[in-house]
Design a binder for these strands. Structure first.
Lengths: 337, 337
DNA sequence: GTGAAAGCGCTAACAG
DNA sequence: CTGTTAGCGCTTTCAC
């Protein structure tokens, strides 16, 4: 690969001039500019991003770090895609890391990303009270939280209104006549699941129903298998639920399997509502009613916030809360006695 | 972040010694080693990967580049995950890029990755005759192809036996009594689809059937929507197929939608077989028969090849061909007259 | 408008 | 075994 030096020699100027051509070409004599540009062309010059990054203080590394629980979860791959598209427009590349909800891995990757001098880090924090991330923010690294909040911290954040999403799901089921509604949720350490469950409980209370702890099951949000087990337990209950609300896409998958296994028909025997409108949601039979969250758009927004922060590190933090939607399909189309 | 210099000062040694402690600690006096290690601890020292990379010739950047068509395709997210897991074990991070099957983007990212001095690049080439990638290999950059081959090029490669996969799918349908079998495939520029289609044709020929061009539809492999249209066309054919083989997961999704829309029941009215055993394949009703490809494992293998090549750049190229499997489920459970 | 020179944090000869 | 020194390729004062 050609270097600045070679280009300079080829164009008969100093490396400083070439560097200027790359950065603020306004300060260069038009003729010189021409000559340098041609030299770059001819040598197929590509600036060395590593050297650029080493030299520059910050905000110039053209690299973003991204730590997500698992890229195999389609919700996160939508977010990643949204981020990447915005990054591409700005000539940025993205380092992708999977934390598996393991704080150790999160810490490891946080260190790596700092050591790579990325311009900023986008992540759904594994723990809403996580100390490591909070310290990172204090250290001055631009951070944007997406999908999950960091409690009591001033940080740019993009989430959806999870509580409302949970509420909408349950309200819809109630309007259909359901009275025993179960929820497959996850640990309250994740702000998103805690909020969805809160919405579930609120909707029940608002309709004068009591919360039945037996109908609330917490599973590993990364495991459809675990959700399948929990769903099976629910279906075997003496007073089994007539509707089940699964709070993320993987749990929905496990739920569908359990329903299949038990030979139950949706929506005749049981109603099902999922979270996340995945591509397969309308290909299954019957098509699935879901709470939609705009993953791709959330990713885009998060990346935009990041670039704003990089451009102006002392600007006020912004919290974006997007609206969930409900997509009605046949899995909740019939009333159950 | 603490630097070498600070650690050196703190430990009362030269920076060289500290550097040695990081690299080949064998050459350092045990006592000095102790002292330096403690200094690192106390200052929370993290080596600056950017500086390391700038200085080092190659094979030390601890960064891998990855260019895939689209992370939102679950097959690719499995591959990515496999690669990332192996990389993590080796203390490597991964830069992820989406090409959208656009050679321009592929080229752009290839330049970025080179400019980032990554130790190697893993990718499914967009075009099996692609010049850019071939030149990259000649330039000495370690490259591993995964999922798709590069024709007539000596390069480490991990693929599955796509032709066999296509053959198995069709043979299974034939054994069920189907005689009009359609295929949803994609452009032959992608080695994988070309091969799957070849398997399809071979199986038909081996059973004395003629290839009917009307039953072969080429779509955009990234668009379930396009596949849905093509499937609709097939279903409206005067002599409609009694079975359809979709050659990747997104096309399968489009196919299922089309079948639903036409009010057809699987497997009574039509048999369906997909490619890729996605998590949702057994959650749909009826569960879907598919040709399985081990995406995660392919990713792992590709990463392993990469690390071998990085360790020994002149070693003989390896081509790994993995075996597809067929997962029989109800979508092809009944015979059709 | 342009160039010389310093230095980002590190590794790798080369001396001692 | 340890330290001195010279850069990797670039940006950024500071002169001219």
């Amino acid at each position: 690969m050609a270097t600045l030096k070679e280009v300079a020699k080829h164009a008969g100027v100093s490396i400083t001039t070439v560097s200027r051509v790359m950065n603020d070409s306004s300060k260069v004599n038009p003729e010189t500019l021409q000559r340098v540009r041609r030299a770059m062309q001819e040598l197929g010059y590509q600036p060395n991003r590593v050297a650029q990054r080493l030299r520059t203080t910050s905000g110039q590394s053209k690299l973003l770090g991204l730590i997500i629980p698992d890229i195999q979860n389609q919700f996160y791959s939508s977010i990643v895609r949204g981020i990447e598209d915005v990054a591409y427009d700005k000539n940025y590349a993205v380092i992708l890391c999977n934390s598996d909800e393991d704080p150790g891995k999160e810490k490891f990757y946080l260190d790596v990303l700092q050591s790579e001098s990325v311009d900023g880090i986008i992540l759904p924090p594994i723990h809403q009270h996580g100390k490591v991330v909070k310290e990172l923010i204090k250290s001055g690294m631009p951070v944007v939280c997406v999908d999950r909040k960091l409690s009591r911290e001033r940080v740019d954040t993009v989430v959806i209104n999870n509580e409302k999403g949970g509420y909408m799901a349950v309200e819809h089921l109630l309007s259909l006549g359901h009275r025993r509604i179960a929820i497959l949720t996850s640990s309250p350490q994740f702000s998103s699941f805690e909020e969805r469950q809160r919405g579930y409980e609120q909707a029940l209370r608002d309709h004068g129903l009591e919360i039945d702890e037996k109908l609330i099951r917490e599973g590993d949000p990364r495991s459809s298998e675990h959700a399948r087990q929990l769903a099976n337990e629910l279906l075997e209950l003496e007073r089994a639920p007539s509707a089940i609300f699964a709070t993320n896409n993987l749990m929905t998958l496990g739920l569908l399997e359990a329903v299949n296994e038990n030979g139950l028909k949706i929506p005749d025997d049981i109603s099902v509502i999922g979270f996340d409108d995945m591509p397969w949601a309308r290909a299954v039979t019957p098509p699935l009613t879901v709470i939609r969250q705009p993953g791709y758009e959330m990713g885009r927004r998060a990346a935009e916030l990041m670039f704003q922060r990089i451009a102006d590190p002392r600007r006020e933090q912004v919290q974006i809360m997007m609206e969930p939607g409900i997509v009605l399909r046949e899995s909740t189309s019939r009333w159950v006695k």
